[in-house]
Amino acid sequence: MNTKKLFLAAAIAASPLFAQVSAKVEVPYVAFPVKMGAGFDEVQANCLMCHSFGYIINQGKQSKKFWRGKVNKMIVHFKAPINQKSADIITAYLFEHYGNGQEK
């Protein structure tokens, strides 16, 4: 696992938000339900530095092609630094746990 990426993920998680209210306020953490399984550590290392797990699960159950497309979108459009091997593992994890059983 890449320590720099983990550090970034932690940095987001830790930053409090202050509003113009008298006391300091913090955006709460939301415990999105995560299905544990092979490949989740790659998701944690690669998919949570820019947004929460909520971005992933609101998509509902989807095909393998859909999940591969999302992982690629992150790499191509948002410049996520994810290598091919990790991308494959993540796609397999997403399809296993958030898949609809269809290849495409």
Binding site: A31, F32, P33, F66, Q102
Partner: peptide, 22 residues
């Protein structure tokens, strides 16, 4: 730590599945 939150996984985010197909 963030990791703990994933383990707790108690709250439902309310993402209803829309069984989609091509």
């Amino acid at each position: 730590e963030r990791r703990d939150f994933f383990k707790k996984a108690a709250v439902t985010a309310g993402a209803a599945a829309l069984g989609s197909s091509t």
